[in-house]
Design a protein around this nucleic acid. Structure first.
Lengths: 174, 174
DNA sequence: TCCCAGAGCTGCGAAATCCGCAGCCTTGGA
DNA sequence: TCCAAGGCTGCGGATTTCGCAGCTCTGGGA
């Protein structure tokens, strides 16, 4: 039994290690690590032994891999909620257009505590940022006094959240 | 010591229970539960005893509260990653405009495994949906053959992700 | 070719954590 | 006034986590 020890050598002939990196500097993951992530996407507190049984590894090995994935920043194990149910009254997605290099703008957004999510995109917006605020005043303040002021920012468009319908992290399990 | 047992009765005079619900049917949370969530937003695997010490509750009480929060769907404890680093080549935010009742459209989106995030918004889009795909063909397929076909959908606009800059869930700790 | 260093895995006790349960207290309704 | 329900505590027993020593495989250097 413990069926696929194979996975660690057949699926990807190379080591599970960071033998090859994508250009962004993030390590490449083998099938076993993906399996571990998949298990933890279902339940972030699942015991290492149970994960090991599922992916064909010992408890200790799973523990080492998980620790490494966390250290590398590849994954994080956290509680997620719908902010609207936890006292934050206003949440919005903001589309941003800017001139020149977008990196400094994105970095400035990343530094703001109210900004939960920043992604650079292709399309009619250069950057999308998700904002979580206490109330309308707070939201207005962040957008007008903190974002639209950033050097290079040409325009913004806001989408205030009315209702969160879905929020999952289980793409691994489909 | 165990300073604020107060919190469970002074901050909000009512029980920590779902004595009063917001209109969406989600229970109201007291300060202690918020504290627990905050702890788990920093580290989803933090031991119950450590959380208890931080919020002034026994280990068993924390365990019961966490279980209840999970059962109620108020929070989930999961591993989150940047899909782009885990083998999914294409990710996009799609803005959608539709006629009539938006609920069925949102429900249909929610049912799609490739859709990770669905939110109804105010602004020039009615719905925002985040999509995670294997590659360009897959993405194109989902948008053209699955989303734009939905009854009521008038138009869509896509923002393909180039680089994820920030992704946090620690709004509680600021 | 031989040898060594590094990475990853296993197995194993010790320590810490999780879990179920009985009992106590408070609140609200009959 | 009494009872039922919800929430909390404390406590053992079962389970899990943790640290460590030892093994294997691989790649590089002499």
């Amino acid at each position: 039994m413990h069926s696929e020890r194979v996975a660690s050598r057949s699926a990807d002939p190379r080591d599970p290690r960071d033998s090859r990196e994508s250009r962004s500097g993030t390590p490449q993951l083998d099938a076993v690590s993906l399996g571990i992530i998949e298990q933890l996407q279902e339940d972030g507190r699942r015991p290492y032994a149970a994960i090991g049984k599922a992916v064909g590894l010992s408890e200790a090995a799973v523990r080492q891999r998980v620790q490494k994935l966390l250290d590398q920043g590849v994954m994080q194990i956290v509680a997620v909620t719908d902010p609207l149910t936890v006292g934050f009254r206003r949440q919005a997605m903001v589309g941003i257009n800017a001139d020149g290099d977008l990196e400094p703008v994105a970095d400035a957004l990343t530094a703001m505590p109210e900004v939960e999510y920043v992604v650079m995109t292709a399309g009619s917006f250069d950057i999308l940022a998700e904002i979580v605020c206490e109330d309308d005043d707070h939201l207005l303040d962040v957008i007008n006094k903190r974002i639209r002021i950033l050097p290079g920012v040409r325009s913004t468009e806001s989408f205030v959240y009315l209702k969160l319908k879905k929020q999952t992290y289980m793409w691994g399990t489909r």
